[in-house]
């Protein structure tokens, strides 16, 4: 029985691979570009379902995709409440606070070469630190509610955003800055008309990095204490009960939310920095 299952799985794998190889050879069309990864994903899902069911892997180790789908549909209200608590209240508010404070600080720092030289290396170093480890401290300070999660997210987003914005504000050419001076532009005008547009790609890079950090920070902070809802709370309690289909449903929500968040920021980037070489020529 299990041999047959493995054989079928191998056949499906090779079938999918062969079709993808055929697809890759067709140059052109946008449709073909999107089709290949979809085909790959469907192949993986089918294999997952087949192997889990065929080999009798217990649901406490790896539930099949269909069970995850059922858990997702059956628990929509719970998942929605968790999503609001963790993503909207925790991650999103922390993201806005952290990024806007970092942005304001970068504007201030940009005025002084001394501060810039001091803050950039320190900020770069801080951005590489495991800041997520501060989660227990913030839970102690701000309580179990969403405020502590927002604080963790804000601190996590602060340094990458600061470093990127400061670098971006310094991206304009010497020549261009001199040109602004010959136009007798005020510092504010130089900032609005030259520096901010030139910093656009860097700022959006920082914003994109922070989208993933925000979601992770909000979920992990809930492991250190949370009210009885939230995605991190759901994961840790359902793991304890070995209800892994529910855990995977939460993961599905997190992946969807994370991708959507990233996608929205990418769309904003495309609208705001349409002039940049990386955005043209597609």
């Amino acid at each position: 029985m299990s041999f047959a299952v493995i054989f079928a799985a191998l056949m499906i794998w090779f079938g999918g691979w062969w079709m993808n190889a055929r697809l890759a050879r067709i140059r052109g069309g946008r449709g073909a570009g999107a089709l290949a990864p979809i085909l790959f994903g469907v192949t993986v899902l089918v294999l997952w379902e087949l192997l889990v069911r065929g080999l009798g892997v217990p649901g406490a180790i790896l539930p099949p995709p269909s069970a995850i789908g059922q858990a997702f549909v059956a628990n929509l209200p719970t998942l929605w409440a968790d999503f609001v608590q963790t993503f909207v209240k925790g991650a999103l508010s922390g993201y806005v606070i952290g990024c806007s404070v970092a942005f304001a600080m970068a504007l201030a720092v940009d005025r002084s070469d001394f501060l810039k030289r001091g803050l950039l290396p320190v900020g770069n170093f801080m951005a590489a630190l495991p800041i997520i480890g501060m989660a227990p401290i913030f839970v102690m300070w701000f309580g179990f509610g969403w405020q502590s999660k927002a604080a963790v997210v804000a601190v996590m987003c602060f340094f990458p955003m600061l470093v990127n914005t400061v670098q971006g504000l310094a991206a304009a050419d010497r020549m261009q800055a001199d040109l602004m001076r010959t136009y007798a532009a005020s510092p504010l005008q130089t900032l609005m008309k030259l520096k901010l547009p030139a910093a656009g790609p860097f700022i959006f890079n920082g914003l994109k990095i922070c989208t993933t950090l925000a979601l992770i920070g909000a979920i992990v902070a809930e492991f250190f204490g949370s009210p009885t809802l939230g995605m991190g709370f759901r994961i840790s309690t359902q793991v304890g009960r070995l209800a892994l289909d529910m855990v995977w449903a939460v993961i599905l929500v997190a992946a969807l939310a994370g991708s959507a968040f990233y996608g929205v920021v990418t769309l904003l980037e495309r609208a705001a920095t349409f002039w940049h070489p990386s955005q043209r020529g597609r």
């Binding site: 993808n20 290949a36 492991f223 994961i235 855990v247 993961i251 997190a254 992946a255 991708s259």
Partner: peptide, 28 residues
């Protein structure tokens, strides 16, 4: 083939907040 079919999934794999499911991986 790898470029067309796997690369998008390498990127998509990072939308799963792995740190958040670390407890599950450890328990499983």
């Amino acid at each position: 083939t790898m470029d067309r079919s796997v690369m998008p999934w390498v990127i998509a794999s990072q939308t799963i907040p792995i740190l958040a499911i670390a407890p599950m991986i450890i328990v499983v």
